[in-house]
Computed example of a mutant assay.
Amino acid sequence: MYRSGAVMAWNVFRFCTALKGLGSIMILLVLAVVGVSYYAVVISNYGPGLVAGGLDSLVAFFILILFHCLLVMLLWSYFSCVFTDPGVVPPNWRPAGDEERGDSDPLTASEFPADSENSRTRFCRKCNQLKPPRCHHCSVCGRCVLKMDHHCVWVVNCVGALNYKYFLLFLFYTFLETSLVTLSLLPDFIAFFGEGEISGTPGSLATTFLAFVLNLAFALSVMGFLIMHISLVASNTTTIEAYEKKTTPKWRYDLGRKRNFEQVFGMDKKYWFIPAYSEEDLRRMPALQGLEYPSKPDLVAQQF
């Protein structure tokens, strides 16, 4: 029995290690898809269209400008998510007691099973430390992550409090970019199968076909993933919490759609669609730092 448990733990460790290695491959895969798409749209199709003259040049110019703008935002959001630490528990962290609120940790036993004998304080036995509210342990990273959503192999990183916005923007711009590439290459794709003849070298035709199929597949898959995360943001819930709170009648972090959105994207509208936060938002919104979160009981207490 003990030997079986040891083998299982060892296999899980190897699986987590494999995920880290897989992530590096995923970054190369993302860059490869970007490269194929760039070659098909810019070099093979619409780049030469700039010198065609007339309406074709105008259409090519518009598509190329939009393509490059979306590509910049996609890569900016992607690498911001890759290189931004999702948030770790500070050394010797302790919950700040709030006598007026009478609650040191928003995650009470009525919402989630306590990790320790103290129903108000959650404890990670793997890290041997207290856990802030909405914090979970990642087996791949081997540490507790603030407001952990999931570990994403595509970004070789956990998605948590400090990079969740960047991850959502990456999904958003990926959907727009892949949809644009799919639509811009659709006429060539239809012409190839409809007429059987289309100008271009065999290499450029193969690249156009591959880019169309890849971008169509990514657009459809990312659209479903994006819709799911939009619903999570609307209810101020992470992927992990959405699974764990199925038996919870009321979710105390649901502050209404507007405030839920601000808990992820901030209050400064100028920063909503770029992977960054204003200094003012970081100062006045503790939730963006991943350690403190307003909840419904807090709002009730403020009224008194």
Rank of each mutant, 00 (worst) to 15 (best):
I63T: 12
H229G: 05
R3I: 10
Y277E: 07
F212R: 09
T248L: 00
F83G: 14
K246Q: 11
T178W: 02
N45K: 03
M223S: 04
V300E: 03
H137I: 09
V140D: 01
P90S: 04
Y277G: 06
F15P: 00
F67A: 05
L180K: 04
N92S: 08
L186Q: 09
N92W: 00
A18V: 05
D115F: 07
F265N: 06
E100R: 10
G203L: 15
E262T: 10
K270N: 11
D149W: 04
S221H: 13
D188I: 10
Q129K: 10
L146A: 07
S231V: 11
M223H: 06
F83C: 12
L255T: 14
L232R: 11
G194E: 01
D149G: 03
S231H: 08
V7A: 13
Y253R: 13
G256I: 00
F193I: 13
A6M: 05
C138L: 11
C16Q: 09
V222C: 02
R94I: 14
A217S: 10
G35A: 14
W76M: 12
V140M: 07
L232Y: 12
S179W: 08
Y293T: 12
D281W: 01
F209C: 08
Y277I: 10
I25N: 08
G266R: 00
I27M: 14
V34I: 14
P106G: 11
S231E: 01
V159M: 01
E111K: 02
A217L: 13
K258W: 14
S119E: 10
E279Y: 01
M26V: 03
L64R: 10
A9G: 09
V153A: 00
R257N: 15
S57F: 00
Y243C: 15
P187A: 15
Y38A: 06
L232V: 05
F225G: 07
F189S: 15
V82C: 05
K296P: 01
